[in-house]
Design a protein around this nucleic acid. Structure first.
Length: 190
DNA sequence: AGCGGGATTAGC
DNA sequence: CTAATCCCGCTT
């Protein structure tokens, strides 16, 4: 049912690609919410200038250095939460940011964008470190992805050469990918 | 103790 | 284009 630990132990870009089409399941007292992953970004490790682990091991990034298959949730801009999946073998700090979901079941609010999907699924820092191989928040295979395209990651212009790497993965043509995608498309001619 | 900044979003 | 708003990590 759920993805096994070995799946998450792979490099972040491999897990990222593998998660497109997967279903994120949030179990709440009030019911269950399910969304299909349509957009992610890979933060490949301490050498990746855009990865939080680039600045070393700190309180915030602690879970990224732990075993794969756990949630790394942090607060950004004082108001939005971002959900990541820890990847690679324990000790190699890397993660995949979930950026957008296609509603499948029990979803009321928008799940387009990393902050919005966390709000819609009631994901906050209390889930930081949660095991994604089961429990209140987990991932399982879903309808297989169609064509997957890659682009540079959003909002990491400061990362020098790493800002240009195509580590963002999304399902082509899917209307639920984040609005930022349109900005990127507009800005670049391709 | 204080300060600066951020893997975003909504609203002028 | 910019404000909002909080935690963290680093400097004093």
């Amino acid at each position: 049912m759920c993805f096994l630990r070995e799946f998450y132990a792979q490099p972040a870009e491999v897990v990222a690609r593998g998660l497109i089409g997967a279903e994120l399941v949030r179990v709440l007292p009030s019911g269950r919410a399910v969304g299909r992953v349509v957009e992610v970004e890979a933060y490949v490790g301490p050498e990746d200038r855009a990865c939080h682990a680039f600045h070393g091991r700190t309180g915030r990034t602690e879970v990224m250095f732990g075993p794969p298959g756990h949630a790394y949730v942090y607060l950004i801009y004082g108001m939005h939460h971002c959900l990541n999946v820890v990847t690679n073998p324990e000790g190699h700090a890397a993660a995949v940011l979930i950026r957008a979901l296609e509603p499948v079941e029990g979803i009321a609010a928008s799940t387009r964008g990393p902050g919005r999907l966390c709000k819609a699924l009631s994901i906050d820092r209390s889930l930081n470190g949660a095991d994604l191989c089961g429990g209140a928040l987990h991932l399982r295979p879903g309808r297989p992805a169609g064509i997957v395209v890659t682009t540079p990651r959003i909002g990491v212009d400061y990362a020098g050469p790493w800002a240009k790497k195509k580590l963002r993965f999304l399902e082509a043509g899917n209307p639920w990918v984040s609005v930022s995608e349109n900005v990127v498309r507009r800005g670049r001619r391709e």
